[in-house]
Amino acid sequence: MKHVQYSRYHGGSKALEYVEVPIPKPKAGELLLKVEAISNNPVELRIQDGLMKHFLPLRFPFAPGTDVAGEVVSLGTGVKGFRPGDKVVAHIHVLKGGGYAEYAIASSSRVVLRVPEISASEAASIVVAGYTALQSARQVGIKSLAGGCEHLNVQIIGASGGVGTILLQLVKLSGAHVTVTCSDRNIELMRNLKADEVLDYQTQQGATYTSPSGRRYHRVFNCAHFVPLSNFSAQLQPNARVIDLTPTRRSIVVAMVNKVSLRSPHRFENFYMWDNQEDLQTMMELMGAGKVKAVLDTTFPLCKAGDAWDHCLKRRCAGKIILCSSPPISS
């Protein structure tokens, strides 16, 4: 089979190799999947650039890829609830990888059945992005997906990306009033996803996160680069909670200082995703019921994974970048 790998840190897309390797065999508790679609995640590029090399080093050659949708080929011993031919979506551990391939191994505890009406590309798009949106909303107290949060004013910064487009839909299900910030080319998309107010970040109003209706925010989700709390503190309600979905060293330090500070009336915190099969099932059910829809930016063939990475680095995506596996060879 073909898969994509790299043998060193740094180098970005130029370090990726499209090579022939044996089809893996599932061990106990694992499934072998024939991959149909893989969702690209920005963190995969950061890991290749050495994000965790000092405390969680990779074994080279390493094949990236965590969010996959495909068909069950075979089962390892002890696997229950699945059978060959099942259409599924899976989350592979980020340090195990292997999703950028024609066939991939996934732990049965990280796999759920795919709703028949949902395509492989759509299913793959809501794994890590869905986890992040659902879990971050819960972290700041937005737990209902059937109303009940009508009293909340929410701001989503960088709402047109893979996480932001899902988060917007989930927060709207809670009943909250949602103001989003994005580039001018994505304003119509945000309106189609039912944002109540849309700010162009290149305008004065967008740069200061000022609600057109004069609302002050109870919750702020930052899906973009780190934004200092001082940049929008004037727009916040007392006791507002601000959550950074892409933690950096700077945001981690700010969150630590904020936690022990007695002066700030607002809470700044970081989000860290965890794998949860039930959350993946929830996202699949929401998508199957038409309550959440996938937003797909561009699709690339697996052999063009480098182009997908380059496109991701431009930071101009609306929704998710998808890789489609090449026609599989015979097993």
Rank of each mutant, 00 (worst) to 15 (best):
K143E: 15
S74C: 01
E117F: 09
S144T: 12
V68R: 06
Q155M: 14
A159G: 05
L134E: 12
G81I: 04
E102G: 02
A159P: 05
G130I: 06
A159E: 07
G97Y: 10
G130F: 15
F82I: 00
L134S: 10
R110W: 12
E150C: 03
L173T: 05
V72I: 03
P84R: 10
K143W: 15
I142W: 11
L75M: 12
L173P: 01
V72L: 06
R138C: 04
I157S: 03
V115M: 07
A129F: 14
A129K: 15
S107N: 15
G65D: 09
Q169M: 06
L170G: 01
V112R: 11
G97F: 14
L173I: 07
E117I: 11
Q139H: 09
G70L: 12
T132K: 09
Y103Q: 03
L167G: 00
A123F: 08
G78I: 05
G175M: 06
L95R: 02
G81T: 03
S144H: 08
P61R: 09
I118F: 13
I105F: 07
V68N: 08
V79K: 00
N153I: 04
G78V: 05
H91A: 10
V171W: 04
S144C: 06
Y103T: 00
G164E: 02
G76L: 12
C149Q: 13
T77M: 09
S107I: 04
C149A: 14
P64R: 09
A120S: 14
R83L: 09
A124M: 11
V111T: 05
Y131G: 02
A159I: 01
V68I: 14
L75Q: 02
